[in-house]
Design a protein around this nucleic acid. Structure first.
Length: 555
DNA sequence: GCCGTTTTCGGCCCGACTGTTTTCAGTCG
């Protein structure tokens, strides 16, 4: 079992306990342990071997014994017994927006509904509204919610799939039989939602590669597939396909397998595939078409071929260009790491600045700061900066944009801060006009530097709220307000298309991690992919600049 | 079920909104 699978299992245990109405602190304990394991730097098997499972924060005697069983046998008795009481299909219902553990409990117990499909029928047959506390609107929300889940069910976020793909790729690269290998398909193009993992391999000994894949620890199953293809599934039932070609065929095949279909069709323009059959690398492939090399993230037939013809492709931003992060949380609000730990991680990433932007007071569950605590936090930051480390910690806030577009702190508080990120965390369902008005008011506020996760979308979970983006882009440009690309793989907000439109308005972008744990600072790589898909260059991204340049821009 | 720079036992656990109601339970950030 991988770290993520162990974490997921502990989360399922917490869900079942919650549905069973068990001690809420016990539930919390399982969730805390799951979260720690999710963020672990080391492989859980390694910690198990070293006898260090107990060192993990939130893991005591009881949970440790369950983890040991999971690592040894791939399952544990306690969990299996809980599943006898509450089956897996019941837990899937928790993904429906507006449906929580209490609702799941009564539909399971009173209606005997055991999975999403049965729940859908129950709602359609108006059986849900017969339950206490349930009515027509709940039924409608259930039907809509299940429809949304079905639409997304064949795709997963890059945050789940990319680490698995990179691990499998590294494993394959380490095999003697494999002469070259690369990610391919939509995952190589950095699409935020992908349906499977495609990996292209150059090898002469196909059966050797096949046996290596079959022996890979994280492979769940391998199907009987045709020559040149190995198909199967990894953890969480993510499908993968390893495509095997000869060394001579590798680079042309890399083009075909990376796609997209639209890009290839436009590129070939009726020509035969043999046109590029002997190319020795991808640049050579494009050269043959008299084009500049087109990076995978741009291969969507959105003008890249025209630009490559004219030599006007953008110089895309790279991870190494990033000089700092302007939106992270700490233990002062809902973050899991201390400011110092965040700073250390930022230093290890070679950043020269890091803005601590904890939540403001209106978000009590997240431990939002009032003026007084914000001031104390500022003192701690002064102290850390006084240590003379080669990184500057900036004082900031992620200030709530309230329902009417006013801010959760007054100007007397905000003007003393280095960075102010304004974000929406409530009233997602305002109509388009009201929601737009709300954001525009925040943009016009001279204390706001950055608008965080503008559209509020959560991939596979929640659609963006209603906004008039033309109006917002116009106002952002006029007021020199920076828009964020939130790098969390569930958000990637603003998306690539909107980022590209923002660039046309000469709006600057901040690629932020929104980290709630020191390890989450590394999520910035997803934001980079998103920015590359939005054709963004270094000059567009404010946190590729020095601190002086940023200050000159936002003052 | 976990944890401890007040504690090895007693804490952990906020508040607005929604949809169902008729005074409130459930969800969510």
């Amino acid at each position: 079992m991988t770290n993520r699978e162990v974490a997921k299992t502990l989360d399922y245990i917490a869900d079942i306990l919650q549905i069973k109405d068990d001690n809420p602190f016990k539930v919390k304990a399982y969730r805390q342990a799951a979260n720690s394991i999710y963020h672990l730097d080391e492989d859980i098997h390694y910690l198990y071997d070293k006898g260090r499972l107990g060192d993990i924060h939130g893991v005591g005697q009881a949970i440790q014994s369950k983890i040991e069983e999971l690592v040894e046998k791939g399952s544990c008795e306690y969990y299996e017994n809980l599943l006898e009481e509450v089956p897996r299909g019941v837990l899937d219902m928790l993904s429906i927006p507006g449906i929580g553990h209490k609702t799941v409990k009564i539909v399971y117990e009173k209606l005997g509904v055991r999975n999403l499909e049965e729940l859908l029928h129950a709602a359609q047959e108006h059986r849900v509204r017969t339950l206490p506390g349930m009515g027509g609107k709940n039924e409608y929300a259930i039907i809509k919610g299940i429809e949304m889940l079905k639409q997304n069910s064949d795709k997963n976020t890059l945050g789940i799939v990319l680490p698995m793909a990179e691990k499998l790729l590294a494993y394959l690269m380490g095999c003697d039989q494999v002469k070259n290998a690369s990610l391919a398909g939509s995952i190589r193009r950095g699409k935020p939602l992908v349906s499977d993992i495609d990996i292209l391999v150059a090898a002469e000994d196909e059966s050797g590669v096949r046996s290596k894949v079959t022996n890979y620890r994280e492979v769940k199953q391998v199907a009987n597939s045709e020559v040149g293809h190995i198909e199967g599934t990894l953890e969480f039932d993510i499908p993968f396909e390893v495509i095997i070609v000869s060394i001579a065929e590798y680079y042309p095949a890399l083009l075909w397998t990376t796609g997209s279909r639209e890009h290839l069709k436009h590129l070939l323009n009726g020509r035969d595939r043999d046109f590029i059959k002997d190319c020795g690398n991808e640049s050579e492939v494009y050269e043959r078409f008299h084009l500049d090399y087109i990076p995978p993230e741009l291969r969507e037939d959105k003008g890249e071929i025209e630009a490559a013809t004219q030599g006007s492709l953008p110089q895309l931003i790279d991870l190494g260009d990033i000089q700092g992060d302007l939106h992270v949380h700490s233990t002062w609000s809902d973050g899991a790491s201390k400011i110092k730990e965040m700073a250390e991680m930022a230093r290890s990433l070679n950043y020269s600045y890091l803005a601590i932007t904890d939540h403001s007071r209106s978000l009590p569950i997240s431990g939002g700061l009032n003026e007084e605590r914000l001031k104390s936090q500022g003192e701690e930051i002064d102290q850390i900066n006084g240590l003379g480390e080669d990184i500057k910690i900036l004082k900031g806030t992620e200030v709530d944009i309230l329902k009417d577009g006013s801010l959760d702190f007054g100007s007397e508080v905000l003007r003393d801060l280095d960075i102010v990120v304004g974000s929406i965390h409530s009233h997602f369902k305002l109509d388009k006009e009201k929601q737009t008005e709300r954001v525009v008011r925040a943009i016009k506020d001279e204390d706001v530097d950055i608008i965080g996760h503008l559209s509020g979308r959560l991939l596979n979970r929640r659609p963006a709220y209603e906004l008039d983006f033309d109006q917002i882009l116009e106002e952002a440009a006029k007021n020199r307000v920076i828009l964020e690309i939130n790098s969390h793989p569930d958000r990637l907000d603003i998306d690539a298309d909107l980022a590209r439109r923002a660039r046309d308005y000469d709006i600057k972008i901040a690629i932020n991690s929104d980290a709630h744990h020191k390890n989450d600072l590394k999520l910035i790589k997803y934001g980079i992919l998103n920015a590359r898909r939005g054709w963004l260059e270094k000059k567009d991204i404010i946190n590729t600049w020095t601190l002086d340049e940023i200050n000159a821009y936002i003052r």
